[in-house]
Nucleic acid binder design. Structure first.
Length: 550
DNA sequence: TTAGAGTTGGCCCC
DNA sequence: GGGGCCAACTCTAA
């Protein structure tokens, strides 16, 4: 009876979905074999991926090649918490280390432990789809039952696409009108789980610390104020939802991006990313609050609206080939971004000379989290606003450093902010000076994340290069020595960017409709007087290029 | 073909 | 802090 009896052992394979509540994969695995004569066994498994966790000394900040140390820490905390919660139910987390490939490690365990049913949450990211296909193919070929419920998102992206005639809805409103109401979460609370199966010769690891993973030089790193795990996720959610008036009045664009001691949003995104919090359970709890108040805000700006945005991007990303790049991506504008490694590095390392931009990038590196509008500011600055650098470069930095880094949402928002898709009003540029000042005129946010500027007087904190030398000396911060001079002039850079965006758009109109001269004429007529010469020459260049192409 | 809508800009004026 | 303008984008629905 010690060894797992055939066909009554189930494995729940955790990847995202690091929670016990509203977890259909866990629920199915725990029910497997109920009523059968033989004893039931449950194997709750997580596989550590060395390619995700191995320190990369060549990286631009502490962490692995794929993830900054803040997210790695968050993941480890989430695993510890999951293990603790499973232990309270008489089980535990079986932590395995993959030698190389995670899928291979899962397949080996399935075979060695004689698993009859494998349950894991469906994951729509390309990397996960490939990995999961490998495991599913192996399991089915071995006669193992496989169950992969959709529970990371409110809705099933494939179903929404089907309802929309085979194509993903490309506007939020059309998404919302198709989506309807999400399925209810599983509300049952377990008092116990089936006993663990025998793991034989397998080495079961305790959840490692970041230090044990080989991150040695991080003692001086600021530890982000957000702890990983389901317990913290539920606590945080309850705390946010307790203030019913705040929930009812929540309007995303009105939040303060410079608030960092007490962020103006819930900061539940990293918990949703790892599945420490179920989006359906969160949705359900918000609806509960709405029932008890007279009025509440509505999508897209409301809290519910934010969850729907998440699902919107998941759906579009699932139905769009090459969603994570410009080339070969049908919904992405083809824009001739420039290459400038020096400017890019200044942006990435928080050395642009614009304190508002640099403070945000430093918060990203240290905390792995910034307010949504702060992300907008720096994304606009890197791409269409000031530097005209490819959104994929910025996407890579965010993807590695954010603790809530989410493939669908991150790529979607980078296309949005760079006016490559979804949003096209490239004349609207975030000012690296006035935008932050509006919320935080004293520059407290800047002073916290860029200590060298902490004594800069209020009137110069957003533009320290304009401070007289005597003031710089008094503030112990000489611009050009202690803090960089601006790497671009926003005035001229943003004008140049608008011009280039206009040209790129004109070019894409030509590509879309090469036979129609009409569109071209009308766009020429709309050109402002001062730019007449350059725009005409640009258009003639485009025409030439276009005729060559034909 | 066209009108209207689109999560969250800056600037100036009151 | 609210409203209108800037200069004009794309996509959808009719």
């Amino acid at each position: 009876m010690e060894a797992a009896t055939a066909a009554t052992a189930a494995m729940v394979w955790f990847r995202k979905g690091l929670r016990v509540h509203d977890n259909p994969a866990l629920d199915a695995a725990r029910r497997y074999g109920a009523g059968a004569a033989s004893a039931r066994r449950l194997y709750p498994v997580f596989v550590l991926d060395p390619r995700y966790l191995r320190p990369d000394p060549a990286a631009s900040s502490p962490g692995s090649a794929r993830a900054g140390v803040a997210r790695i820490r968050f993941l480890l905390e989430s695993l510890s918490d999951l293990d603790a919660r499973l232990r309270r139910l008489g089980s535990r987390l079986l932590l395995l280390r993959a030698r190389d490939d995670v899928a291979d490690a899962v397949c080996a365990a399935l075979k060695d432990w004689n698993i009859g049913k494998l349950c894991f949450e469906s994951d729509t990211e390309p990397y996960a789809l490939a990995r999961d296909k490998k495991v599913t193919d192996f399991a089915l070929a071995s006669g193992i039952e496989v169950f992969t419920p959709v529970s990371h998102t409110l809705f099933d992206p494939a179903e929404i696409i089907k309802k929309n005639g085979g194509r993903p809805p490309l506007t939020y409103q059309s998404f919302v009108s198709i989506a309807g109401e999400p399925p209810d979460p599983i509300m049952e609370e377990y008092s116990e789980l089936p006993p663990l199966g025998d793991t034989g010769e397998y080495e079961l690891l305790p959840v490692p610390t970041v230090e044990e993973l080989g991150y040695v030089d991080i003692s001086e790193e600021e530890i982000p104020p957000f702890r990983g795990g389901e317990t913290e996720a539920l606590r945080r959610m309850k705390e946010s939802l307790q203030n019913k008036e705040w929930v009812a009045k929540f309007e995303k664009p009105k939040g303060d991006p410079s608030a960092f001691l007490k962020p103006s949003t819930t900061v539940l995104s990293p918990y949703l990313k790892f599945g420490c919090l179920s989006s359906r359970y969160f949705y359900h709890c918000i609806q509960d609050v709405y029932k008890s108040v007279r009025n509440h805000t509505k999508p897209p700006v409301s809290l519910i609206g934010q969850l729907l945005w998440r699902d919107f991007f998941y759906t579009v990303s699932y139905g769009t080939p090459n969603f994570d790049r410009m080339k070969g991506n049908k919904i992405c504008k083809q824009i001739p971004w420039s290459e400038n490694e020096e400017l890019f590095v200044a942006w990435r390392d928080g050395q642009t000379g614009y304190p508002w931009i640099d403070a945000i990038m430093i918060q990203l590196r240290k905390w792995g989290w910034m307010h949504h509008l702060a992300r907008h500011s720096v994304a606009c600055f890197l791409t269409r606003g000031d530097m005209f650098i490819h959104w994929e470069k910025g996407r890579d930095v965010f993807e590695r450093l954010l603790i809530d880094s989410d493939w669908a949402i991150n790529n979607g928002n980078w296309m949005w902010l760079s006016c490559s898709s979804f949003f096209y009003q490239y004349h609207r540029i975030y000012s690296p000076i006035t935008f932050g000042k509006k919320y935080d005129p004293n520059g407290n946010y800047i002073r916290h994340f860029i200590p060298v500027l902490k004594d800069m007087p209020r009137e110069y904190i957003y533009e320290p290069w304009t401070a007289p030398l005597s003031i710089q000396k008094k503030a112990n911060c000489i611009i050009g020595k202690d803090y960089p001079k601006p790497v671009v002039d926003h005035e001229t850079a943003s004008k140049e960017c608008k011009k280039r965006m206009g040209e790129a758009y004109a070019s894409s109109r030509l590509d879309a409709n090469p036979t129609k001269g009409k569109t071209l004429n009308s766009s020429r007529r709309k050109m402002p007087h001062g730019d007449q010469d350059t725009s005409n020459s640009t258009i003639s260049k485009l025409l030439k290029r276009n005729s060559r192409a034909e």
